[in-house]
Design a protein around this nucleic acid. Structure first.
Lengths: 141, 141
DNA sequence: TCTTGACTTCAAGTCGGCTTGAACCACCAG
DNA sequence: CTGGTGGTTCAAGCCGACTTGAAGTCAAGA
């Protein structure tokens, strides 16, 4: 089952063949070999591709992925730590966003942005230069 | 303090004037009036802009923001519910991603993608067509 | 032999959310 | 009345991550 052509690799990974060629173009994943000019991917390459996909879902850019793949060891840990931190911020923000949205959903006025006094107040604080986080803290200090 | 020129509005909202013109171009936020051909923004417009910014941070696209701003009432609730749901998924994914990364950080091999048997196994399952979530559930059913 | 289908290359297009640049206009202080 | 600052328009550029299209190659099957 080892060396598969590009179409099969694409099917396995649920990705477009054009994406595979693109990855090669930017030096991210090279096929194992060419057979009659055609790309073939082996187990190692499929793993590498699977890793690329997962890392993408975990929020890494292709640039960072290429970097950690080619400089194993140090950069690897750094990148992971950075991403863990980013995700922590993301989760925190998303939580607050949810709180805010749940509150906004309660509002019964037709055009909350102009008519809801609570929302208007928050927006005005915002115009005064406060961030969402600071406004949230103002309400739950 | 009411009608401010574009530069002042931009300063207040910590945004570029070019972004304000862009918002106008796509029909998202119009200035209150023109004074000698120049845009002026009043309180209502500043609130609208503040709302746009917050909504963006909460993960809404400009297209959706325009939609809820112009169709107050029904669409508003729908959009919020949808976004709350999206955020829930996002938080869940981010948490799993963190777990995965924390685990990956433990790995001491130089090139985990090819050498770490645990990771290789996960990647192979992936090549077989499983999603990150399904693999995660496989480990904690 | 001819056709299909999967592949190849290279250039150009797409999307969202702006930014940048060039050329021109309006207002106010000195 | 002149210079500086901060406006104006319009078109084009940028970013990442691809996709699309045109034109050509190659092996297998009817």
């Amino acid at each position: 089952m080892d060396p598969v052509p590009i179409g099969e690799a694409a099917r396995l990974l649920k990705i477009n063949t054009s994406a595979l060629r693109y990855y090669e173009e930017i030096g991210l994943v090279r096929p194992a070999a060419r057979v009659g000019g055609r790309r073939t991917y082996g187990r190692a390459e499929l793993r590498r591709l699977a890793f690329v996909q997962m890392a993408q879902e975990l929020g890494f850019s292709l640039e960072v992925i290429a970097e950690v793949l080619d400089q194993p060891g140090g950069r690897w840990h750094e990148a992971i730590d950075a991403q863990i931190a980013r995700l922590e911020v993301l989760i925190e923000q998303a939580r607050r966003a949810q709180d805010f949205l749940v509150h906004a959903r309660e509002c019964t006025t037709a055009n909350p942005v102009q008519e809801c006094t609570t929302l208007a107040h928050v927006l005005d604080r915002r115009v005064d230069g406060l961030t969402l986080d600071e406004i949230a803290k103002e309400h739950h200090p």
